[in-house]
Design a protein around this nucleic acid. Structure first.
Lengths: 344, 344
DNA sequence: AGCGCTTACGTAAGCGCTTACGTACCCTAG
DNA sequence: CTAGGGTACGTAAGCGCTTACGTAAGCGCT
């Protein structure tokens, strides 16, 4: 491990300014108890010396951390990359550092990462990505976060409601509803869903929205062909294969995220199923490539970058007993992957 | 700022084990000078207590940092996201933490981020993304890194040769060469290049490869229509427009990264130019979506995740006077976006 | 028996900050 | 003129670790 180096220390600044350590510290922290002239002089000297406080010493002495830990499923998934971009942006504006961990969609490993971050004394934990339908794990994470907050830490979640912390909540159900409605408006009656792993709450919520839309139109959700797979492009490809084989009458596929939608489009292309002439496809999230696909993807837009910023904003506010909730809103973006149901 | 909390400290472990602080520290660090039985007892007690060393205290005392700072242009660009994934993976295996900064492709801001990371006492700096054709900035960054390494820090770069530090170097020139060759093999004679900003060394290198391939076949690189734009999808769209307007005889477009290639495809689609029947398109990088585009993209595969891992691996090795260089290798991946030149 | 060497551990001095408390000094009120 | 209360600063005690150095015991050797 490398060894940190001989940068100017606070003593150097204090010496130059002919004041004590305490005064220098107060002046640079902008705390009161220092006359304006002295404070100015100290700040100027610090600037000239290129003094930057050693965060390790500062944290050790004060107990106050300025790093935020961010847990994502996979950083190279555009959904999480965009969230991370938002978090990093805002953190940079606030002079905070961001540490990123990948959980790989494994609840056990996620819990481990969470503990690791807390043990590393980050001040803020941001946990993003769908929750898991695994009461033990969720309870453990919840307990961990509660203890963390009891000891002065702050936490916020993105896309998970069951953690007992402030949360940014995408309009999963409403979005699913809007997608199904859009397809029914186009005359589709045989709709299939390419859903992510059954154990993810995001999948359940989006699916619930789809079902409720069907019910609203007097149609039985039981008619819906739901195929589960990984919440990835590969999962989408597999799901599409299965749908084409087992439900050949399908005229529209709802993929529960854009990654799966891309996989679905990929399979349809190789199977020479024209989109949207023969099959309509919709996604969810509106990752930035969605607009550039061929055909461009009809989907639900979620403001991912914004969501990252909001989560950090929440975490920077003081802890409240009742967790705050910030719904994201959503927007149906109609592009070229959807069209009227084939009349055959 | 939150306040860190009452976790077990090393004294607690030492007390329980009835040994001194020093012995406990040594035992947990696995250093010698402790008998096997005592060391075992200490480790066991630490485990029971859930003891995790306070990294701030540890760093302050030892001067050894275990965080690595990673600078990327944009984390939500798949190229960088995949690199980051590799870095984070390996860091997790090694028990290191990763701090990510975005430079937004602005050399000035990048330099600022670099200084910030160093001031924050990270032990390792990883700097990724194309270099800039701005001697002042590059020299400043180089100087900053040299000073950092002189003081015991470690640094590595990904895709930049001029920083005087260990570097992972994508086969930019060879890749460009291979792309041009592939297109010429298909009979294309009117080739245009959708290039990123002229100030990026990556752009220059890839372009040089293209030119050399032309020269090798006895053709003048002057014939090549080169259009510069942002190294993004939007830049690709704009470049394609310009190529279609100003060089209508073009039958193949080389986009110098996949993002631009996606923009190019997008424009071609909206202008109803069939790919590859009327126009072939190639990209560079092979980001994971490239295979799922319509048509799937012929491109040069770079092992981004691997590159991230390699860069960190280099940085974990001791400093050498002569910077190490690790070429990445490359692979031409032929997919559906390229075909024979139209015979008209 | 005495010497030096090694091994296993303890003692204590920091690392560079923050901050509770102490102490001058000045101002105002009585 | 002094008591009381600010204000502006200094003193010093940590924060939780690491590590140079000290020490005592055990060993083999002459």
């Amino acid at each position: 491990m490398p060894r940190a180096s001989h940068r100017p220390r606070l003593v150097d600044v204090a010496e130059q300014a002919a004041v004590s350590l305490a005064t220098a510290s107060r002046a640079l922290a902008g705390r009161e108890g220092v006359s304006a002239e002295v404070a100015d002089r100290i700040r100027q000297i610090a600037g000239e010396l290129g003094y930057v406080a050693n965060p390790y010493a500062r944290t050790l002495a004060s107990g106050a951390t300025s790093t935020v830990g961010l847990i994502v499923h996979q950083i190279d998934d555009p959904y999480f990359a965009e969230i991370a971009a938002g978090v990093i942006q805002l953190a940079a504006e606030r002079g905070l550092l961001v540490q990123i961990c990948q959980s790989g969609r494994d609840p056990g490993y996620e819990l481990q990462q969470l503990r690791h971050l807390i043990a590393q004394r980050v001040g803020i934990v941001l946990i993003s990505g769908s929750g898991y339908d695994d009461p033990r794990m969720e309870a453990a994470a919840r307990a961990e976060l509660a203890a963390f907050q009891d000891h002065g830490g702050r936490a916020a979640a993105i896309g998970r409601h069951a953690l007992g912390v402030d949360a940014v909540l995408p309009d999963n159900e409403a979005g699913g509803h809007a997608l199904a409605q859009h397809l029914m408006d186009l005359g589709h009656r045989r709709i299939a869903v390419a859903a992510g792993s059954a154990g993810l709450t995001t999948v359940a919520d989006r699916l619930a929205g789809v079902s409720s839309a069907l019910r609203q139109r007097g149609r039985s959700p039981a008619d819906l062909a739901v195929v589960h797979g990984d919440f990835t492009r590969a999962g989408g490809r597999a799901a599409a294969e299965q749908i084409l084989n087992e439900h050949p009458e399908t005229t529209a596929i709802i993929a529960l995220n854009d990654a799966m939608a891309m996989g679905v489009l990929s399979t349809l292309r190789s199977r020479r199923v024209p989109v949207p002439a023969r099959m309509s496809v919709v996604g969810f999230d509106d990752v930035s490539v969605a607009a550039d696909l061929a055909p461009s993807l009809t989907t639900i837009r979620l403001p991912m970058t914004e969501m990252g910023r909001t989560a950090l904003t929440l975490a920077l506010k003081p802890h409240t007993t009742r967790p705050r909730r910030r719904p994201t809103g959503h927007l149906l973006v109609v592009r070229d992957s959807t069209g009227p149901a084939p009349t055959t």
